[in-house]
């Protein structure tokens, strides 16, 4: 296996809401290039909180997270935003596409923000083409099926050519066919493009495609 793209060491996340809640407790995890890691566990087990920390969305209360040579736990908000923009791609259960933008514009927006292409429109169309969604480019996300939306969301996640893809329940809102297609796209991102892919899911079908399955319960990693 390659050198890890992402390494989390003894990561803990506490929330103070009247009483202190420890959502994640002392979790260590690494993700290598081209590797698919599946995090499973019941609701409230802390898997989404862990994913948030791995993607630089939330800072750990303690512990270290190093991604692409950057110590995420030490970065400022601005630096974290820049990390997410350039090195992480997110896929959400609820797709999180902006309905007011066309499919192409949703993808193009990330490319423009990252400033990684002199022709963001073409780059967005290429990203859509790579997931077989180019024919949807000028449609509104409102009129798309769940499977189509997730394709577009994956195109958006890939558009900034990130080293990491972090997916939260990517098949949770999809039927089995669309779910399989989504898994295939994420697998392709890992196997073909060498990206590290971390997936949080209840969907046991994904386990067949993962290199490692991590079980979480009560904020603790079980294996």
């Amino acid at each position: 296996m390659n050198e890890p793209l992402l390494r989390a060491e003894e990561v803990t996340k506490e929330y103070a809401a009247g009483v202190v809640v420890r959502a994640v407790r002392g979790v260590s995890l690494s993700v290598a290039a081209g590797e698919i890691v599946l995090i499973m566990g019941p609701n409230g087990s802390g898997k989404t909180t862990l994913l948030s920390m791995l993607g630089g969305l939330v800072r750990p209360t303690s512990g270290r997270i190093v991604a692409g040579g950057r110590a995420l736990h030490e970065l400022s908000d601005r630096e974290l935003a820049d990390f997410r923009l350039r090195h992480a791609g997110f896929v959400f259960q609820g797709f999180r596409l902006l309905d007011e933008l066309s499919v192409r514009e949703n993808v193009q927006l990330v490319i423009e923000l990252a400033g990684i292409s002199s022709n963001p429109r073409e780059a967005a169309e290429a990203a859509l083409d790579s997931v077989g969604a180019l024919h949807l480019a000028e449609r509104s996300p409102r009129v798309l099926s769940g499977g189509e939306k997730q394709r577009v969301a994956i195109a958006r996640a890939l558009a900034n050519r990130p080293m990491l893809i972090l997916a939260d329940e990517p098949t949770g809102s999809l039927d089995s066919v669309a779910g399989e297609a989504t898994i295939a796209l994420l697998e392709s991102a890992a196997r073909t493009d060498g990206r590290g892919v971390v997936i949080v899911s209840h969907d046991s079908r994904i386990a067949r495609h993962a290199d490692r399955v991590v079980e979480m319960e009560d904020g603790v990693m079980r294996n």
């Binding site: 993607g55 969305l57 908000d77 601005r78 935003a81 820049d82 990390f83 997410r84 923009l85 350039r86 992480a88 997110f90 959400f92 999180r96 902006l98 927006l109 990330v110 923000l113 990252a114 958006r156 900034n160």
Partner: peptide, 14 residues
Amino acid sequence: REDYATLKALGASQ
């Protein structure tokens, strides 16, 4: 709020 959170998650700066 969700859209702005999404934009932030995608890396849009403040």
